[in-house]
Amino acid sequence: MEAIKTNKLSKYYGKSVGIKDVSLTINKGEVFGFIGPNGSGKSTAIRTLLGLLIPTSGSATILGHDIAKEGKEIRKKIGYLPSEVHYYDEMSSRELLLYSSRFYGPENPAEIERLAEMFELDLDKKITDLSFGNKKKCAIVQCLIHEPELLILDEPTAGLDPLMQNRFFELLEAENKKGTTIFFSSHILSEIQRLCDRAAIIRKGEITAVENIQDLLEKQMKKVRLVFKEKPIDLKLPPGSQHEKWHDNKLNFEYVGMVKPLLQFLNQLDLIDAVLEEPDLESIFMNYYER
């Protein structure tokens, strides 16, 4: 059975497009990435799946249940981590987490305690006194306590420091091994690369591609910055290079293709410095998907 299956799911806000004809199939046990720049429709798609937004047209099922009719059943089995956390200011984290867990069944204070310790969250502080990152930690604990079958994570790492990000990813990998399906939305490609098997790319509300991460890596553009001892004459760049720019003895260009030929090319040069950079998503879209 599929974890998530959408069929031409669309959401319009008046006349402006939120998402348009989104058809996706995500298998159980998969870690599925959802990449797109800000405002591309990632959150709209997620909110529609959760029943927060009423779809304009199309349909979807989650774990075999129809989102329009069986939202309550679905949400029992889902853990949702919002991109922006808004909780009840007057509650402490502990109160909020207990309140949240009672929607799923009996309270489980031990599990709350364990997860809070893992993420170094002070349970007795009021929500209103928590920093952005700490609110996020509270939300992470919130989405895990009831051991959901499907995790829907909307830009989960925003606000987390690298140490916590790492801990969170390790936890996600462990959850996935236990069989939890993970739907991971992000605009940071490297996160998606680390965790996901497949990813959908969304742009202006439409899915532009669904790729295996391996293929995406091969197609992925890199920004290359080289500093030469002396500016070489008649330098031939490897195939897949574009937009080359010289500043004295410095060269910038973009490279799309397998990494090996690029390394072989770099190896034969007389370089002082070389930097390979991951471009931001927007430029991947500009350079790859529009070619």
Partner: peptide, 17 residues
Amino acid sequence: KDQTSEFLMSKPISRLD
């Protein structure tokens, strides 16, 4: 107003409830 309805409605509870 406080945007907590996102939290509430992502819990297993129907709007009618």
